[in-house]
Design a protein around this nucleic acid. Structure first.
Lengths: 175, 175
DNA sequence: TATCGTGATGACAGTAACTGACATCAATGG
DNA sequence: CCATTGATGTCAGTTACTGTCATCACGATA
């Protein structure tokens, strides 16, 4: 809900009660909890779609593509779902200000990594590689996202992802 | 508290109320919450010590050591704090059964990685490398720990860590 | 048109995780 | 012997969340 984001940004996450949100949205508290499992979940509304998108992208990539390329390309594609940079910034600020929300974000990322690993396995990628590629892919996503959100970043999201991947490459190559 | 672990193992985390735990421990619910910030925190009681240990190990390692070696050695050293394998197993089972507890564990790991990165920076390791080495080190710790906990693993914790690191090495070397 | 699901919402009561404020009480140091 | 301090108990209160039942709009069907 937009109402929730507004209130979280205005007065902070903890200071905002479920009742507040429901009231602004013009529904009951009970209804609020029918749509969202808990107060935090509001901020991760699109997470399911995002994961579906990534999984579909992995499944649809040509079989000749290497695991790491596959995952990175899928992450780049997420750009389409992340249209509004200002919104993402505000959301990130709210999450950064609250440990409980960071926990939830960590869980979403871990879940995404797990699902991506499974998708790779179904493409025939063997097991230690699949997990590692998936986890690394999520790391690249996170770092790229942070860059995109950051101050002096006129680049597109996809460019940020590519940049993060390049940095990682040069790091591991040096070792 | 031991009381909490017992109850979590007996009847599950969600089914156990703070009141239950307090009663078995022979104190008040209020007292319980004075010792632990929340119900979950009980299972992460040693986390602070563990982090202190890792940080100290990083700080104390010879300046000639490479970042990745430093972190890995620090993780190996944690073996001293993880004496009771059976206890670790039970604890892991409880956590695995509850998403909320997984969230908390993820947060602890992320915090540890952040602190380790900072410790590396203070030893003069430059910035992208410090973060990457720290995060990779935590990953090695996690995988090594899972192996140690697992079924047919007669190895010591330190051996599990070394094994995980070797696997990772051969993976990144191949790419 | 009447009626019969059905799905979304409201109303309400209840549980349990926490929190703040104050009282108590034992150990400790002077 | 008394003052301080730290740990605990007591109690009241808030808020996140859940179960249950009533209501009500709406579309399908007789």
């Amino acid at each position: 809900m937009k109402s929730a984001m507004e209130l979280y940004a205005e007065q902070g996450f903890e200071q905002t009660t479920a009742s507040d949100i429901a009231e602004r949205a013009g529904v009951t508290e009970r209804t609020f909890f029918r749509y969202f499992a808990d107060k935090r979940e509001v901020l991760f509304f699109g997470a399911g779609d995002l994961q579906d998108f990534v999984l579909a992208a992995i499944a649809a990539s040509p079989a000749t593509m290497k695991p790491m390329e596959t995952v990175s390309a899928a992450m780049e594609g997420v750009a389409d779902l992340l249209a509004d940079r200002e919104f993402s910034r505000r959301r990130a600020a709210v999450i950064a200000a609250n440990p409980g929300l960071q926990e939830r974000e960590l869980l979403k990322m871990a879940t995404l990594a797990g699902a991506a690993a499974e998708a790779l396995r179904e493409r025939g990628v063997p097991d230690p590689v699949a997990g590692l590629a998936a986890e690394t892919g999520v790391t690249v996503f996170r770092i790229g996202f942070e860059t995109w959100i950051g101050e002096g970043a006129p680049e597109s999201f996809a460019e940020c992802i590519r940049e993060a991947l390049d940095q990682l490459r040069s790091l591991t190559a040096g070792a």
